[in-house]
């Protein structure tokens, strides 16, 4: 099995092949070239390789991988990418093909990690001597029935009461709410400026992990959302209490599936959860207009997710080893302690 390796900078030359594989595998916007190109532009270190198996015009497998430690490679996985960059024509992971790739990587490669894979797009392999299949996170999703009321009736009494209480609180305090949606390319700069302003004033700002205006994260989201706006798939939810922007979600919407990529809200707000009220309102409106059938969160399952949905699945990593020696080596080194 001959793999071809190219520098990551050549990705634009392979975007048709990548797109074709993604379409075969579920057509997720998170693996669309409109997502990958800005991701590589902003987060590539230059050490990544595009690897390709089969006819370069119609490859069977295509991935972007990078060395992570001596002898170890992994799919390119910046923190803003929910899924590792690995696509294959078949849903099952071709272990012999991956092993042959490991042998063809520069240096003495011993392992390759295929990170953050969604069981919707890749069948999870079994753990064996040279394959470690590991849980990464449990992520929630909502599959809506046709009508919002049918969905809402199935939620707990506690959640329904809580949302009603928040509404009453807003009315009592003369706070008018408004949902605004940005979807045009020229709106994305403002969307990211506002996002950064809210997030950097909260706890993420204190630990310096917030998106801040003009930083790499902010540039990535602006570039990526602008690219998706050309196909009408960008969606930035913005929620106001009177004239103040209090919550915003950065999303993609494809095939009636909403992918919530990033969310922030004004942490000084007491008594209500503006992000939840915003989503409640959006779900209600979008379902009424038949624009929505599913929401994907792609983040670690939290208690609040469980209130909004009963559905979740495990995102996994697969570590493939060149041979069986790693299991043996673990055993040997453990004996030494």
């Amino acid at each position: 099995m001959m793999w071809k390796l190219y520098p990551a900078s050549e990705f634009p030359n392979f975007q048709d092949q990548w797109q074709s594989l993604n379409k075969d595998r579920g057509n997720s916007p998170l693996l669309d070239v409109k997502f990958i190109l800005p991701l590589m532009d902003k987060f590539s270190s230059g050490s990544e390789k595009i690897v390709l198996l089969g006819d370069p015009e119609k490859p069977e497998i295509m991935a972007v991988i990078a060395p992570t430690a001596k002898g170890v490679w992994a799919s390119f996985q910046p923190s803003n990418a929910p899924l590792g960059l690995w696509l294959s024509r078949k849903k099952a992971l071709d272990i012999p093909a991956v092993k042959s790739l490991i042998k063809q990587l520069p240096g003495m490669a011993i392992a390759l990690g295929i990170t953050q894979q969604d069981p919707l797009f890749m069948t999870r392999p079994d753990t064996e001597k040279s394959v470690a299949s590991l849980d990464y996170i449990t992520t929630a999703h909502i599959d809506f029935p046709e009508k919002f009321d049918d969905y809402w009736a199935l939620r707990s009494k506690n959640l329904r009461h809580n949302m009603k209480r928040q509404r009453n609180f807003l009315t009592k305090n003369h706070i008018e709410t408004r949902l605004e949606i940005y979807s045009r390319g020229e709106q994305m700069k403002q969307a990211m400026m506002d996002y950064g302003k809210i997030e950097s004033s909260g706890w993420k700002g204190q630990i310096e992990s917030a998106v801040t205006q003009g930083d790499r994260q902010s540039q990535f989201y602006e570039q990526m959302l602008s690219a998706f706006s050309n196909s009408g798939e960008s969606l930035v939810l913005r929620y106001y209490y009177n004239e103040n922007l209090v919550a915003t979600d950065l999303c993609l919407l494809r095939d009636k599936i909403l992918y919530i990529l990033k969310t922030t809200y004004d942490e000084t707000i007491k008594g209500t959860s503006p992000a939840h009220i915003m989503r409640f309102e959006y779900y209600q409106t979008a379902l009424a207009s038949k624009l929505l059938k599913r929401v994907e969160f792609y983040g670690p399952l939290k208690d609040w997710h469980k209130k909004w949905t009963n559905e979740a699945r495990v995102i996994f990593h697969s570590n493939i080893y060149r041979n069986n020696f790693i299991a043996l080596a673990h055993k040997i080194t453990k004996l030494i302690g």
Binding site: K70, F325, I326
Partner: peptide, 18 residues
């Protein structure tokens, strides 16, 4: 083993492979 700190399990596997 136990004397060369670099010789962890990954290094043992690499050594056998090499």
């Amino acid at each position: 083993l136990g004397n060369i700190p670099e010789l962890d399990s990954m290094a043992v596997a690499m050594l056998i492979t090499a």
